[in-house]
């Protein structure tokens, strides 16, 4: 009986080994704090583009007002 358990354990060994292998993530980058550089750059681009969109929105509102004054 013990033999069967032993064989089963041996067969399962690769599975355990596989599970123990660490999955690579950007841990070094995080520990060095460089991830904040990425976030900062993306925030600048996002906020910049949104600001541009807001200006476009206002511009259209102005033209709408101008045109409705003209038609009245």
């Amino acid at each position: 009986m013990n033999k069967i358990y032993l064989i089963a354990l041996l067969l399962l060994c690769p599975l355990f080994l596989h599970a123990q292998q660490p999955i690579e993530m950007a841990d070094t980058m995080r520990s060095e704090g460089k991830i904040y550089v990425v976030v900062a750059i993306l925030l600048v681009i996002l906020i910049g583009l949104i600001g541009y969109l807001i200006m476009l929105d206002r511009k259209i509102t102005r033209i709408e007002k101008k045109l409705s004054e003209k038609t009245d």
């Binding site: 999955i23 690579e24 993530m25 950007a26 991830i35 990425v38 976030v39 993306l42 925030l43 996002l46 906020i47 949104i50």
Partner: peptide
């Protein structure tokens, strides 16, 4: 919309994600 997108960029890169094979980060 602006608030949600700013939150997405910050949380999307800084919050915890599961460690999975192949897709990784």
């Amino acid at each position: 919309a602006v608030a949600l997108l700013i939150y997405t960029v910050i949380a999307g890169f800084l919050f915890y994600v599961p460690r999975l094979n192949i897709v990784n980060e």
